[in-house]
Design a protein around this nucleic acid. Structure first.
Length: 187
DNA sequence: CCAGTGATTCTCT
DNA sequence: GAGAATCACTGGC
């Protein structure tokens, strides 16, 4: 039996959770791998979708911690977040990349690739590889069809500024697994 | 580097 | 409500 998160684990500060999720294992219907890159988005954070309050799109970010916030971006891609903090906080961790482990063949089909590279190295790619879309918005990531298990202790973690944002660009709220070949970009 | 892509949100009437 | 701006990205030059 794999280890599980203790009760209330996801109700910690979002930057702490973003760091802690590096090395955690995420799967959807048995397809996935180890998370190697995350970013934190908090309520009082100009780069966060929740900065201007609750809307139809970001409602899941105000829901229970440990659940998914899935949104569409640029009209073509989905991005996955882990909701964090006490109920109504409006904070979440963007899952930016994972190291493909189980269901690699399935990921290759979904991504239209034949090689092992770039399968889930980026938030849009990751969702395409795992088959994550709108119907997963708000679902509990620690329960079927998802599974999420804690990282081993002592992993080397990289820290840096977040990617692709135009506000609060200086905040070092991006985290990565040092040495991983599956990061979306170098730190 | 830069265009594609369309939902969501903003900013006025 | 309507029109405009924005956008937590990706793939191809």
């Amino acid at each position: 039996m794999l280890a599980s998160f203790p009760p209330g684990y996801f109700q910690q500060p979002v930057v702490d959770l973003a760091r802690a999720l590096i090395g955690a294992t995420l799967t959807l219907e048995g397809v996935g791998g180890m998370i190697v890159e995350t970013e934190a988005y908090d309520r009082d954070d100009p780069a966060s979708h929740t900065f201007r309050g609750q809307t139809a799109r970001n409602a899941a970010m105000f829901g229970p911690a440990g659940h998914a916030y899935v949104y569409r971006i640029y009209g073509m891609y989905w991005c996955l977040n882990v909701v964090c903090g006490e109920l109504g906080r409006g904070a979440a961790v963007l899952i930016r990349a994972l190291a493909p482990d189980v269901g690699i063949a399935e990921m290759q089909v979904r991504r239209g690739l034949t090689g092992p590279k770039g399968l889930a190295s980026g938030p849009g790619r990751l969702c395409q590889a795992l088959g994550i879309a709108r119907e997963h918005d708000g679902l509990d990531l620690t329960d079927m069809p998802f599974a999420l298990h804690p990282a081993p202790a002592g992993l080397p973690i990289l820290t840096g500024p977040r990617i692709g944002i135009t506000k609060a660009v200086e905040q070092p709220w991006r985290f990565g697994l040092a040495g991983s070949p599956h990061l979306s970009r170098r730190f």
